[in-house]
Design a binder for these strands. Structure first.
Lengths: 195, 195, 195, 195
DNA sequence: TGATAAACGAGACGGTACGTCTAGTCTTACT
DNA sequence: AGTAAGACTAGACGTACCGTCTCGTTTATCA
């Protein structure tokens, strides 16, 4: 019935965890991903380096958790039309990628994940899984409404949406382009609709 | 009306240039972008580090030139329909991003370009300019044929195409998905066509 | 008349003490003094680090007790001549310094004792006191026999004997030189004898 | 007839060498051998750590050179009697071991040399060779004078002298004992003299 | 019998040093 | 002036150990 057997030894201090994550976010914003070293994070958090390495295998894992585990999941949009649902979904992606820490971290983070075989296999699940879940629901409703075919390729659309936002927000632009979500949603919705 | 004022002293050895570029490509493929240090490139090229720094400001510039200056420009596609033109264009992007050295270099390269303000402003021109030129011609023909509106947003579409390919080929997949170009082209073409 | 006031709480387990000392001796022999860390000793003894620190202030104190508290005191030699008494005494020193754990520990141990002011003041008493006591007796008998003067400097002779053995056995040689004790005793005995 | 073939590349800056040695001596005196880390030496010398490791394999080698390469060799004593020659020789040893940096370094240094098989084999040559050479000359003269036998064991005597001084000056005492050299010389001289 | 108190195994904690690596610059002699 | 070689300062890397601390648990004495 129970589960946790018995965590021997002194338990990890949750305040260290929090201090490290906060320090990481601050440094990402102030000096960028490349200059955010584990040592600097530990120093700012008032923590030994071991205390960081005890919780995360390296910088990529730490930064990922620090930046992409807010999970303040807005409700899955349900506006009645595919185009408007996609717009809402995309606006969420834009906001997420455009947050200061995320914008500073994303390119370097994706590069580090790509460079490590173990991490690379986790990109799809770690970065895209939440969005995919939401997109699936939106698609199911659109299928029920007869707007799109039942076999519309979710992954392809998701890569396209995420890739477009990443290029626009993460790499090229500094301004989020207030109409980006709506315009991109319109193109994609029309592109996958039946007829 | 020449220009170069006066190339005093010993001229630069073009064989060094070539040896450096070759060494860089080899290292990218063998050890990846992160482990491809200027020192390692110089050593493999049988060249001093200064000889590298004399020609390139740093690793990103060197790698960019080594990987993305093949310019074996295939002719701009002209198949008669927007969808097929886009397919051809996309296939070019897929092939370019999927080449061994490019695939190894791209994520880290984009991250380094993004991290440096000077380089960041060059991403659009350095990476996307050639494709944009070709896409513009394709669009002009499609406008003439009455397939798309004259004010179809080129940059938006280009970011979408490039982003989709980058996510699919560079980050996630190891197999290029032989139908990617066609399927993506179909969606986008339909999404921007009139009616 | 009483003595122990009141040992409240759980008493210290004598088996821990013994296990720690044994583990320390093993590690000294296997990996040397420098690599014999408190953590490693505790781990091998199956004991928490605090259990070690509760009994000893640090590595030097622990190692000293582990290595130099055998006190299997042979009887004070009484052969009838100073030279032979010294030979026996010296052979004891050689055997003590040449024991595996002692040989491994001595140089580092003396260095750590020297580096700490509190420990430094204890070198004479901790390391040399037993030998000094024995040497004093030997000297008293030699004085009674008229071999040496009553004011022969014990400390000077003791430093000389111990220093010579330490250099020969601890620092330089791996073989104890079976004649070392006899030859050294002969020189010193003759050097301090009257006439 | 020359020899040095041709030292390619930038030559090592002798000012770095000197700055490192000076910093090492200062730190030895100020914080002792154990707390004298390579990093601290480099920082005080205004030098990168690599510049230290390029010249010395580790702390023991660096400290040895910093402390024991003064070689301000006084002339070999030639007073006419063995006892007085030995006194002069011993006074040199006392002064050498009692210099601030040497006194701070010696115990830890000998411990580190002893702990490493390669360094251990160099103790006799590195630390004792100069003294042995001088002692040999003194012995030769004493043999010529008929004071000692021709086969008097130099190494044994040298170990005894050095060991005695090390114990007295390096380990135990802070005051060099102004009469130490003379008293010890008297004992040893008498101990090895013929008759 | 129950409260109190110390010892115990385990391991987290803030620090510090290790020896290696890379960045980008500088200094040789040679071409 | 370009070149190959390699030294230079600076600082990050991930590991190890230090001596202290905080858990849950055990074992004793005292009330």
């Amino acid at each position: 019935m129970s589960s946790v057997p018995s965590p021997k030894g002194r338990p990890r201090d949750p305040r260290s965890h929090e201090a490290i994550v906060s320090a990481a976010i601050e440094l990402l914003i102030e000096v960028g991903y490349a200059a955010t070293s584990i040592g600097a994070v530990a120093a700012r958090a008032g923590v030994g380096k071991d205390t960081v390495y005890r919780r995360w295998r390296g910088k990529p894992e730490l930064v990922f958790e620090a930046v992409f585990t807010t999970t303040d999941q807005a409700p899955i949009p349900d506006t009645g039309t595919l185009a408007e649902d996609l717009t809402a979904l995309l606006q969420g992606l834009v906001d997420e990628f455009h947050a200061p820490a995320a914008a500073a971290a994303l390119p370097g983070l994706l590069a580090d994940f790509t460079a490590d075989p173990v991490l690379k296999s986790r990109i799809r699940s770690d970065f895209l899984a939440p969005s995919k879940e939401r997109l699936l629901v939106v698609f199911q409703r659109a299928v029920a409404r007869g707007e799109i075919a039942a076999d519309t390729p979710v992954d392809l659309v998701l890569d396209t949406l995420a890739g477009a936002v990443f290029f626009h927000v993460g790499l090229v632009g500094q301004d989020p382009d207030r109409e980006l979500a709506g315009r991109l949603a319109a193109v994609i919705a029309k592109g996958i609709e039946i007829r």
